[in-house]
């Protein structure tokens, strides 16, 4: 391994290789919690997830609960989970357009759930309602009025949350902070457009991308590392795999720090979400 990135003296990669941390906190802005019908999870509840986060030097995990996304768990209960771990957990209110009463009731409590509640999570592909549908309007207006983060599942080619739909949303709701989950995976040109043709209100979130050879490099070149956020879908993906994917990308260490740490911290600090 001589002369590899992991052996480069004083580098972030060397620090992570040897110590599992590099002297700065990592912010994971795309997580989940709870079991999921499509996969076996051994570690999907808060205690074991927090153990994994701690090992990997992750300071904050912002997540939405799977069951809340399916409508079988209310956001109030997710808030109660976060109250047990205020040092580490923040949550996005799960917004399911098929449960309009839940949306109104839960958003009415949003302010009381701050700073543990930081924004909204939309999962249009899975709910099979395009983000442009009026069923989302109440929630998106709410986020827009308050300048809240809205983490959206996005994917290239999707009619529900693909590039054109996401660009339209980011242009329409100018104050909302759109976190494009998975960076509109595969449609990198629309990912670029969403950042550059909106109102300084779009960040590309990297879940499922670290490790894909050359993609982080491409996104940094296209939009700059200041517009990228780190995420893992935990408990889906391993923190070290994803951090390794950032450290293994052929970008500068300043870019790595922006992605893993600075960008998210700045957003959360500005909104008061770090004051739990």
């Amino acid at each position: 391994m001589k002369n590899s990135i992991w052996q480069k003296k004083g580098s972030l990669a060397e620090a992570y290789w040897n110590k599992g941390a590099a002297g700065f906190p990592v912010y994971d802005m795309h997580g989940h919690m709870g079991s999921h019908y499509a996969i076996y999870f051994k570690r999907c509840q808060a205690p074991e997830m927090l153990a994994h986060l701690k090992r990997a030097g992750v300071k904050i995990l912002a997540f939405s609960h799977h069951d809340a996304l399916w409508g079988s768990l209310r956001n109030q209960q997710v808030y109660e989970i976060c109250r047990q771990y205020p040092e580490t957990l923040r949550f996005y209110l799960a917004i399911n357009p098929h449960f309009p009463e839940h949306i109104k009731e839960d958003l009415a409590k949003f302010e009381s759930w701050r700073p543990l509640a930081i924004g909204l999570k939309l999962l249009s592909d899975y709910h099979r309602v395009p983000l442009s549908d009026p069923k989302y309007q109440y929630a998106l207006d709410f986020a827009n009025e308050r300048g809240l983060p809205v983490l959206c599942h996005t994917w290239g080619g999707s009619q529900y949350n693909g590039g054109p739909v996401m660009l339209q949303a980011a242009q329409k709701y100018k104050q909302a902070k759109f976190f494009m989950g998975h960076s509109i995976f595969g449609d990198w040109e629309y990912a670029r457009r969403c950042v550059q043709e909106s109102h300084d209100n779009v960040w590309l979130e990297l879940t499922a991308i670290p490790g894909e050879r050359g993609i982080i490099e491409k996104l940094v070149t296209m939009v700059g590392s200041q517009r990228l956020l780190f995420g893992t879908d935990l408990p889906w993906f391993d923190e070290f795999q994803a951090i390794g994917g950032v450290l293994a990308a052929k970008i500068s260490e300043e870019d790595m720090k922006n992605i893993l740490w600075r960008n998210a911290e700045a957003i959360l600090r500005e909104s008061g979400a770090l004051n739990a």
Partner: peptide
Amino acid sequence: SGLPRYNQGSSMLQLRHSG
């Protein structure tokens, strides 16, 4: 690793800190 779709580094760190 899955090279060339994936780089070789991400899975190395995953293994290094697998516990």
